[in-house]
């Protein structure tokens, strides 16, 4: 199957001329797949205003080739046009694997292109491996609210496509001695789809909206008792360089805002450190955070389900632990 189709592609994403960190995370994933297949790793950038230094950093983070299609007309993400550009490249060059970020744009472009390419797409993969017997991509993702992990293949269609959540991999260390090529590809005017217009863009105060980009999340639940007590969570988050999240119960009570909600009907997060204060650990909450690298939980109930997923649990009162922890961290800082 994979004879005609070779190389691993990653779709780089940029915002206002700067590559997003996820572009490098995808290269780390792609590098190990390309090495396992003995293929090249290609980073594809569709957009505008991304300079050579940025493109070179894709090479120093693992790419062998960078395909850059840049044009002022590509500044706004218009999925129809981006999908046309990607399809055109795919049809000419026939990649074996395409990885993209599970961002709102990546999660729009990939299914759009996969439908037209008549191939499979697996969303939000947590693990990607090559099946050495067949050369197929093994795509692992949580299924059914995080209760099981399913491994999925695209045996008879190419390219094999997958999205990966931001922050689920570390980028490779930068290696300035790596060599690679940058290929600038002209946008073909006929690929522009003019049906949809972006009228304006308003940057949003980053705060909780990019909870998912945060390495540290301090989350509170009903055990925090009232809105005022969330101040302590903000203090702790600030000391740890993190953000504040919440259970649905806390959001429903108005102690936190909906963009802060973590779980099945909120955000899925994968931080390095997740601290749960007064959260019971309902399955819907766990579905959004249980793959966090390290989980710390404080709860008065020794049988709280959150302790099942905790790496470090304290059975105790959050209002005793929080002030002590905050003052100890302040001491360490000074």
């Amino acid at each position: 199957m994979s004879d005609k189709f070779t190389n691993v592609w990653t779709i780089a994403e940029a915002f206002e001329g700067k590559l997003k960190p996820v572009s490098f995370e995808l290269l780390a994933r792609g590098r190990s797949l390309a090495d396992a297949c003995g293929e090249q790793l290609v980073s594809v950038l569709i957009g505008a205003k991304v300079g050579d230094a940025e493109l070179n950093s894709l090479i120093s983070h693992g790419a062998d080739l960078v395909i850059s299609v840049q044009d002022p007309a590509l500044e706004a993400f218009i999925v129809e046009t981006y999908s046309n550009v990607l399809l055109d490249l795919v049809e000419q060059r026939k990649p074996n694997i395409i990885l993209a970020a599970a961002t709102n744009n990546g999660r729009t472009l990939m299914p759009h292109a996969a439908m037209r390419l008549h191939t499979g797409l697996t969303a939000d993969c947590t693990d990607l491996q090559i099946d050495l017997a067949t050369g197929d991509l093994l795509q692992t993702r949580p299924a059914i609210g995080g209760n099981i992990l399913a491994t999925i293949k695209t045996p008879n269609h190419r390219p094999q496509m997958a999205t990966v959540r931001p922050r689920s991999t570390q980028p490779l260390p930068e290696d300035p001695s790596r060599v690679g090529k940058i290929e600038q590809v002209q946008l073909k005017p006929e690929l522009l789809d003019k049906r949809v217009m972006r009228l304006s863009f308003k940057a949003e105060a980053a705060d909780e909206s990019n909870l998912q980009d945060s390495d540290v999340i301090v989350a509170g639940g009903r055990g925090m008792k009232k809105a005022d007590n969330f101040v302590q969570l903000h203090d702790l988050a600030r000391l740890l360089g993190g953000k504040v999240g919440a259970s649905r119960d806390a959001v429903d009570r108005g102690w936190a805002r909906y963009p802060q909600q973590i779980g099945l009907s909120g955000k899925t997060v994968l931080p390095k450190l997740y601290i749960a204060m007064g959260i019971s650990g309902a399955i819907q909450h766990l579905a959004g955070m249980k793959t966090s690298e390290t989980i710390v939980a404080v709860n008065t109930d020794p049988n709280a389900a959150i302790f099942q997923v905790a790496d470090f649990g304290i059975v105790g009162d959050a209002f005793q632990v929080l002030p002590e922890l905050i003052s100890r961290l302040e001491e360490r800082k000074s």
Binding site: A114, H118, T119, G120, L121, T122, L138, P142, A143, G146, N147, I148, L149, A150, T151, I152, K153, T154, P155, N156, H157, K290, I295, P302, F307, Q308, V309, A310, D311, F312, G313, I314, V315, G316, D317, Q320, V321
Partner: peptide, 25 residues
């Protein structure tokens, strides 16, 4: 369907983390 589920497994349910219990101040 272009995609096929080839296997499923239940992720480890417990991390067997360390526990501390606060009984007194």
């Amino acid at each position: 369907s272009p995609t096929r589920v080839v296997s499923t497994k239940s992720p480890k349910v417990t991390r067997n983390g360390q526990m501390r219990t606060i009984k007194e101040d």
